[in-house]
């Protein structure tokens, strides 16, 4: 069964969302780009709640750790090792090293954002004893299928939501305001902003937080029309990204995906004939961000074209 995972926006959301398979939650200072940060005690309460409902819980420990944060990371994994959680999402291989100390390797889900783009590298990590890998968002459906069909390890992909495309350690909004000699340079910290490139119209969401500055694609990812191929070819889980979503929007999206995959398991033809309906239902969610199918049918260009340095206008 395909696992439907949602990164949670609040405790309230988790209480309401009793139909998805799993949640992603995390703590400030350890999780990266999470829609909400929970305290350790809140996470324990959430664990109790979701276990009662037979849902799974994954803790995101996916930040890029600098040397002086290793002690903290070590302490955190030790704490986590006492919890009956289903997985730990990480993006920094230092976490793998620490997880060995606490016998947590089998719970690890390697999610390095951009680094897993081929089946051989996925196989490499499958040999490391970890539970699952999240593959990159920038590859095609054919590539995803080729990777997943090797069945070397559980495969997770982004199903719906914000697509991160840039992470700087720098405070790129604050730095700019300091350059402008603004009297409140940190005014926009933790606020959802967007940027527009001079010859393009797209609005790229951007946020500066304690981990630096993050920029996202102008369109959310949406794979709802391809669940059949993904399931058939052994993709294990899809993530619905809660970042920038209100509880209601996230709940709405999750419900459509839940219905779609239930349709699939009950009657594949019903799923197939309902594909447009799912899109319409998603579009009718009040406040939902614009979405597309990302790189599923768009192969990125290997090497560059030096005569087109600025790229084509999209």
């Amino acid at each position: 069964m395909l696992e439907l995972i949602v990164s949670a926006t609040s405790i309230d959301f988790i209480k309401k969302c009793d139909f998805c398979d799993a949640f992603i939650i995390g703590e400030k200072g350890k999780g990266l780009r999470l829609p909400h940060y929970f305290s350790f005690n809140e996470m324990k309460d959430i664990l109790n709640l979701v276990k009662k409902r037979n849902q799974k819980l994954y803790i995101a420990c996916n930040k890029i750790f600098h040397e002086d944060e290793l002690v903290d990371a070590d302490h955190y994994l030790k704490q986590i090792s006492t919890l009956d959680i289903d997985g730990i999402i990480f993006g920094d291989l230092g976490i793998y090293q620490i997880a060995k100390k606490y016998q947590l390797v089998h719970k690890l889900i390697y999610h390095p954002e951009t680094y897993l783009t081929n089946y051989e590298s996925v196989r490499f990590f499958s040999n490391k004893g970890i539970k699952r890998v999240s593959i990159a968002k920038e590859i095609t459906l054919d590539d995803i299928i080729e990777i997943a069909s090797k069945k070397s390890i559980e495969i997770d992909i982004l199903g719906h939501g914000a697509v991160n495309m840039f992470h700087s350690m720098r405070d790129l909004v604050t730095n700019y305001y300091k350059f402008l000699k603004h009297d409140q340079p940190t005014k926009y910290r933790n606020e959802s902003l967007y940027i527009v490139e001079e010859i393009r119209d797209d609005k790229y969401p951007m946020i500066e937080d304690e981990n630096g500055t993050h920029i996202f694609s102008a369109y959310d990812m949406c794979i709802i029309q391809h669940l059949d191929e993904l399931i058939k070819n052994h993709v294990t889980s899809i993530r619905i990204e809660g970042l920038f979503k209100t509880d209601d929007v996230l709940l709405g999206i999750t419900k459509v995906y839940y219905d779609a995959y239930r349709d699939y398991y009950h009657d594949i033809n019903k799923y197939k004939s309902n594909k447009d309906e799912y899109i319409n239902r998603l579009k009718s969610i009040n406040g939902i961000q614009p979405f597309k199918d990302g790189f599923l049918f768009k192969k990125t260009i290997y090497k560059g074209d030096e005569n087109n340095e600025r790229g084509k206008k999209t």
Partner: peptide, 15 residues
């Protein structure tokens, strides 16, 4: 962070 940027992929299709 090098290797974690796909601005180019998203804005120009260049990997």
């Amino acid at each position: 962070y090098s290797g974690r940027c796909t601005l180019s992929n998203h804005m120009t299709d260049r990997d």
